[in-house]
């Protein structure tokens, strides 16, 4: 096992063991989506119109949940120092941790989204399109979140700061994710245009996120 796969397995085990954060995101997602009709009323036509926006906002908040423990937990027990001293390139290490976080937080969200979409009166093909946009978009949320997690690692009350740092950076993902999902649900614009831009944003954040997070970690841990 290479160091990176070992790290991936370790992070996923931590997320899934007792007290871990896996599946908590999905639960949060479900609760938030359920609460919104109570606030705006059970009008199915309205829910269908704003359904993609609700799901995207809930997904954005849910993917923030466990992010503050991503490096802070390792920092507390000292394993972050070991990781920094290791021979594996820090950028790849950070990307691996991001991947583990996405697999335990983002992916369950994507899988559950169609079921939750049914609650908002979305039909199956629309649900599929929405799921696709979330599948493409949530990795970007995680990898932008990595930067915030790395910056907030040594700070006390990093969790609140993290949200303030990360949420504005995710505005483009939200815009194009919701635009693509809306195009599939209500039209009239084509699905392809915003969806392609969303893919491009994700690819860019997959590259920029790990480098920026690694740089932040090096600065903080000196």
């Amino acid at each position: 096992m290479t160091p990176l796969t070992a790290l991936l397995v370790r992070d996923m085990r931590i997320a899934m063991r007792v007290g871990g954060s896996a599946l908590m995101g999905v639960l949060f997602f479900l609760v938030v989506v359920t609460l919104i009709p109570f606030a705006i009323g059970p009008d199915l036509a309205l829910l269908k119109r704003i359904g993609p926006a609700i799901l995207w906002l809930a997904a954005l908040l849910a993917s923030l949940l466990a992010l503050d423990r991503l490096f802070a937990g390792d920092h507390d027990d000292g394993s972050l120092d070991l990781i920094l001293m290791g021979r594996a390139p820090l950028e790849l290490v950070v990307a691996t941790k991001g991947l583990a976080h996405w697999l335990t937080t983002g992916l369950p969200l994507v899988i559950c989204a169609p079921l939750i979409g049914l609650l908002l009166n979305l039909d199956l093909p629309e649900d599929g399109a929405l799921m696709l946009t979330l599948f493409v978009g949530t990795p970007a949320l995680t990898f932008i979140g990595l930067v915030g997690a790395a910056i907030a690692v040594t700070l006390r009350r990093g969790g609140l700061l993290l949200a303030v740092i990360v949420l504005p950076l995710t505005v483009p993902i939200l815009i194009f994710g919701v635009a693509a999902a809306n195009a599939a649900v209500t039209g009239p614009t084509a699905f392809g245009t915003p969806f392609t831009i969303l893919c491009a944003l994700t690819l860019a954040s997959l590259v920029v996120g790990p480098f920026a997070a690694a740089a932040a970690l090096r600065q903080e841990m000196e």
Binding site: L27, L30, P42, L44, L118, L119, N121
Partner: peptide
């Protein structure tokens, strides 16, 4: 439609959320 925010179904959904909690 698969889901309406009918009072009984909605209460049941909240019960389900409490079980998950």
């Amino acid at each position: 439609t698969y889901w309406v925010w009918d009072a009984r179904l909605t209460s049941e959904l909240v019960l389900f959320l409490l079980y998950l909690a």
